[in-house]
Simulated assay, not measured.
Amino acid sequence: MRRHRSWMAWIRNRFQLPAILVALQQAQAGIHVHIPWRLPSHVPSGYRRAGAPPPEPPKGSDMRRHLTWICLSLLLPLSACSSSSSEKTVPDFKQNPNPKQVYQLTLTIANAPGPFASVEGFMQFDVGTPECLPPPRENGGHLWPTPTETIPFVWTRVSDTQYTGVVYIDGMIDEDYYGRGMCRWKLMQARAALKATGAKRETRFVPNIYPEKLIAQQAESTYLLREDYPRYSEAASEEPVSYGLTDRSKMAHLRDDELFTITLTPKAATP
């Protein structure tokens, strides 16, 4: 046991772990540091008797235990950096109270196996300028996550098979949220979420449309399975979701009477 403690002390000195840990803690505080990775060419005499050879390294499980201790000693300050970054305050992202790029969406259901009592709408916006986000060193060495905002909108019932809603391209305010330049938001998609009655275990059908189709005022049809309504009998999830497909050719093995469609048709509107 004494030999192992002596070997452990020698390892810590050889790799200069105390200095490395101090340097990492200083780096966490934002102080420019130099980490002493250069290894000494000899074993300091303070860790062995004068004239005696260096202690034999531990073997087997002892060696694995010592190496594990070394790795943990190095990683703990890094995990502290990560946890501290996760505690940073999220900026107060602002919705645009007066959007100008407005579109009316018409949702049309065809060949569905039944009615939909629950119809919701959402717009997803992401920051499209990563250069405005904090650098990785402020997030434990990882890229800063892309800010995302979801804005709900209302579908107005026209009939059992048709609804209308209003969406907009400029739903968020561009601003210097992190002090690193202008963050510019981009609409990623507008989508609907339909359920037969709104019950928890029912399938949620989620068709969507991308901003390119909005701007071009082109309709987007999504093909969905009728057998998923109101819930697929063999669904394993408590909250099943069906996104369907917009390419009918990828469902060529299915007959038309096995599918139903939800079509989103955009039209430019006045703000």
Rank of each mutant, 00 (worst) to 15 (best):
R3S: 15
S6T: 11
R12T: 10
N13I: 08
F15I: 13
L17T: 09
P18L: 08
L24G: 01
L24V: 05
Q25E: 13
Q26N: 09
A29T: 03
G30D: 03
V43K: 02
P58I: 06
K59C: 06
M63Q: 09
H66R: 10
T68M: 07
C71I: 15
C71K: 15
L74K: 00
L74W: 05
P77K: 03
S79W: 11
C81K: 11
S82E: 14
S84K: 13
S84M: 13
S84Q: 15
S84N: 09
F93M: 05
F93T: 05
F93E: 10
K94N: 06
K100F: 01
T106Q: 03
A117R: 14
A117S: 14
A117H: 02
G128V: 12
E131S: 15
P134V: 02
N139F: 00
N139Y: 00
G141N: 06
P152F: 12
R157E: 14
Q162K: 14
T164Q: 14
C183R: 03
C183W: 06
K186A: 09
M188V: 15
A190Y: 02
R191I: 04
E202Q: 11
R204F: 04
R204C: 09
V206T: 05
E212K: 12
L225I: 07
L225R: 12
D228S: 10
E234D: 13
A235L: 08
A235N: 10
A235K: 00
A235S: 15
S237M: 05
V241L: 10
T246D: 15
T246C: 11
D247K: 00
H253S: 15
E258T: 04
T261G: 00
T263A: 14
A269F: 04
